[in-house]
């Protein structure tokens, strides 16, 4: 496979063990720039990115995030600006807003990989606590944290290492073949 985008998609992995080496601010900004270019429904851009490389903030963020196995040296928390969403007529439980969080996260994960930095998404955290830790404005709801850091040489085994899914396992053709 020679296309660099397709090669990056195939070679990216979730990184759950990171070294203490800091991730440069310029690298974090490049990841944020990639996230800005992720597609959003209606080109509304209702996602807000909260970035930090501050060790103290990262330590506390991990304390209130049970799903954060790694110790990142940078993190981007993707929030939904619910107040702006409401102004567009979205109900509080509208699922489309979460889809845009996912596309932004996937784009950032790939960007980090392209920049030679490890990344891992974390969705298991206390929204209430993270709101306090990051001093989020009213109406901003944290939905996903993209952890950034340099990968350790040895990673924890994946959740389901024996499963080798192909696209065929996930796809149904219509009409049926």
């Amino acid at each position: 496979m020679t296309d660099p985008v397709l090669a990056a998609i195939r070679s990216r992995r979730v990184v759950r063990a990171m070294t203490e080496e800091p991730v440069g601010r310029d690298t974090v900004e490049a990841v944020l720039d990639a996230g800005r270019w992720a597609p959003t429904a209606g080109n509304r851009h209702l996602q807000r990115f909260v970035a930090t490389v501050d060790p103290g903030t990262l330590r506390v963020l991990r304390m209130v995030s049970p799903g954060m196995i790694q110790r990142p040296t940078a993190a981007v928390t993707i929030c939904v600006d619910r107040a702006s969403a409401e102004a567009y007529g979205f109900r509080p439980d509208a699922p489309g807003l979460s889809v845009d969080v996912g596309t932004a996260a996937a784009t950032m994960l790939l960007a980090a990989h392209a920049l030679g930095v490890g990344a891992g998404p974390v969705s298991s955290f206390s929204r209430a606590a993270v709101g306090v830790v990051l001093a989020l404005p009213a109406g901003w709801v944290p939905e996903l944290i993209v952890c950034l850091g340099h990968p350790e040489a040895v990673q924890p085994p994946a959740l389901n290492p024996r499963r080798a899914l192909g696209w065929q396992d996930l796809t149904t053709w219509v009409p049926a073949e």
Binding site: M63, V64, P66, G67, S124
Partner: peptide, 14 residues
């Protein structure tokens, strides 16, 4: 202890 307490409380919620 505080770190573990934070983990347990937030894990209960998540």
């Amino acid at each position: 202890a505080l770190e573990l307490l934070a983990y347990l409380v937030t894990a209960a919620r998540t």
